[in-house]
Write a protein that binds this DNA or RNA. Structure first.
Length: 507
RNA sequence: GAUUCCGUAGCUCAGCCGGCUAGAGCAUUUGACUUUUAAUCAAAGGGUCCUGGGUUCGAGUCCCAGCGGAAUCACCA
């Protein structure tokens, strides 16, 4: 860390020394806080003043108005802001001298009674106060003007996205409204846990450091274990381990998993991201579809208190049942063409008719994928289960019970984006081996994102995986949807950033 | 990875066609003020104009390269 200090930061260190010289400890160990700001603002009325005759609040000073022998300040705690009024004659001359040394950003506690000022603002009238933490670094300050109708105008807000992501703690202080996003994120995850736990499914932990990576198609991060002198990979998915646990006899397991993929970064991709995968024995993808829509409906109820969510101006309804459509029916609906069973060459021609440009080197699957994202996805605004994918696209999904060439798989699309992916899990060991060996051939042909053959996983399938349904949900994207954010960086506290050059980063 | 835009005080931003000592508001310091609220009034201090080259009598401004960010596109969840 560079130690360049500006004039204002030097000034704060001087004040810190002066406060100590007055015999006041600027970093005391505890404070007996009794109320959140929000609780006082909600509960207080002049009639109920007796209930607020003694309160203790604590928080960071966000606004300071000194008027000679009286001072007003606003402190911000986790619930919001509240004003505190100090009068020299009431807190005492010595304490008031300490008050004069306080700055924006300092954390204080105040004890007193609640009253309503001449202008009608609910305020804590301080009988005493305690400096809890002296801040010696500058915080970006956002002044707020609250109009009569309650609208809040912010001035000089901390707006630099780069700094907001790099120094999220400042962002949370200066833009406290973003806390709502992260609170919702937390609620979504805890509600999901509760949903699964209530049904008897077991939360488990599987390796993040894996000797072989699998369960998805992506490039991994590689690391090295010194003692074993082996390469290890940060997991790209936990699917293959969770299935081993079903083989081992658990009948319902789930994991909320940080996964790592060594790919590009943009507003929907962070190198580490959170997904939830769940596997339930003796169930199929149709059962999983019912479970998924019920789960999401419950989550939306819990975080929004209804079944609709507004995303980018569009109302999304999570009312059950969600739309269900087979993939090739969607192709027919939105392109007017029946694409099932077409050869690669026929697909190239079909793409030409539809008006989707394809690269001549692409495989049949890649062409289908392209047509789907160009012509179908945009229509899947309301929650839609897309069912029954071609087998080549899904090396871990079970062959369809009645449709040759397809697998029992669904993806859930909402607002044109994939939120969940599920299959009846492939448990035929002969089929599974052939599919992974086909992936190995694709890989040998140059696609370094194709899956690799994991012999131990195949052995587990040979031992016997019962009929099982599996589901994966992208938590970050789900949270983006439920909080109306368009960038993954706004739903992750500390998104990955390119390191700053040393010397450039002055805090 | 490609394209476009951005980087000036702690924060938010001006800075024209290249031309005096680089500006404003908030914040900071000093003074006044015992119900203010973007408090107010008076005065003062504060700059690696992202970095490095180049053009020029002269560069915050123009050119080149680099660094960092944002948006759009391509790929991946």
């Amino acid at each position: 860390m560079s130690e360049t200090r500006n004039e204002q930061e030097e000034q704060r260190r001087i004040k810190l020394a002066e406060i100590r010289a007055m015999g006041v400890e600027p970093y005391p160990p505890t404070f007996g806080k009794t109320h959140d700001a929000h609780a006082i603002l909600d509960g207080f009325s002049p009639d109920a003043a007796a209930d607020y005759a003694t309160v203790a609040v604590a928080g960071r000073i966000m606004a300071l108005r000194r008027m000679g022998k009286a001072t007003f300040c606003h402190i911000q705690d986790q619930s919001g802001r509240i004003q505190i009024y100090f009068k020299r004659d009431d807190v005492g001359e010595q304490a008031y001298d300490v008050l004069k040394k306080l700055d924006l950003g300092d954390i204080i506690g105040a004890e007193g009674y609640v009253f309503s000022t001449q202008t009608g603002e609910t305020t804590v009238y301080a009988r005493s106060f305690t400096l809890l933490t002296k801040s010696v670094a500058m915080i970006p300050l956002a002044k707020e003007e609250v109009a009569d109708d309650g609208t809040v105008t912010r001035y000089d807000a901390f707006a630099d996205k780069e700094q907001r992501y790099r120094k999220r703690y400042l962002d949370l202080i200066a833009n406290p409204n973003i806390k709502n996003t992260f609170v919702t994120r937390s609620k979504v995850i805890s509600a999901m846990r509760r949903y699964f736990d209530d049904r008897g499914w077991l939360e488990v932990e599987t390796p993040i450091l894996q000797p072989l990576y699998g369960g998805a198609t992506a490039r991994p991060f590689v690391t090295h274990h010194n003692a074993l002198d082996v390469e290890l990979y940060l997991r790209i998915a936990d699917e293959l381990y969770l299935k081993r646990l079903i083989v081992g006899g658990f009948e319902g397991v789930y994991e909320i998993s940080k996964n790592f993929r060594n790919e590009g970064m943009d507003k929907t991709h962070n190198p580490e991201f959170t997904s939830m995968e769940i596997y339930v024995a003796y169930k199929d993808y149709l059962w999983m579809m019912d479970m998924t829509e019920h789960l999401l409906n419950s989550l939306v109820q819990e975080v929004h208190g209804g079944s609709t969510v507004s995303v980018d101006g569009t109302e999304i309804s999570f009312a059950m049942p969600f739309r269900r459509a087979r993939m090739f029916d969607l192709f027919e609906q939105y392109t007017g063409m029946q694409l099932r069973g077409l050869s690669r060459q026929e697909l190239v021609e079909a793409a030409g008719v539809i008006g989707v440009s394809v690269d001549p080197t692409w495989s049949a699957m890649k062409i289908l994928d392209e047509i789907f994202s160009e012509r179908v996805e945009e229509h899947l605004v309301q929650p839609t289960f897309v069912m029954d994918y071609p087998v080549e696209m899904s090396p871990l999904a079970k062959a369809h019970r009645s449709e040759p060439g397809l697998v029992e798989r669904f993806e859930l699309f909402i607002n044109g984006k994939e939120i969940a992916n599920a299959f009846s899990e492939l448990n035929d060991p002969i089929d599974q081996r052939e599919r992974l060996e086909e992936q190995a051939r694709i890989r040998a042909a140059g696609d370094d994102e194709a899956m690799i053959v994991d012999e131990d996983f195949l052995h587990a399938i040979e031992v016997g995986l019962p009929p099982t349904a599996g589901l994966g949900i992208g938590i970050d994207r789900l949270v983006m949807l439920l909080t109306d954010n368009t960038s993954i960086r706004d739903v992750v506290f500390f998104p990955q950033m390119r390191p700053e050059r040393s010397g450039d980063h002055h805090a």
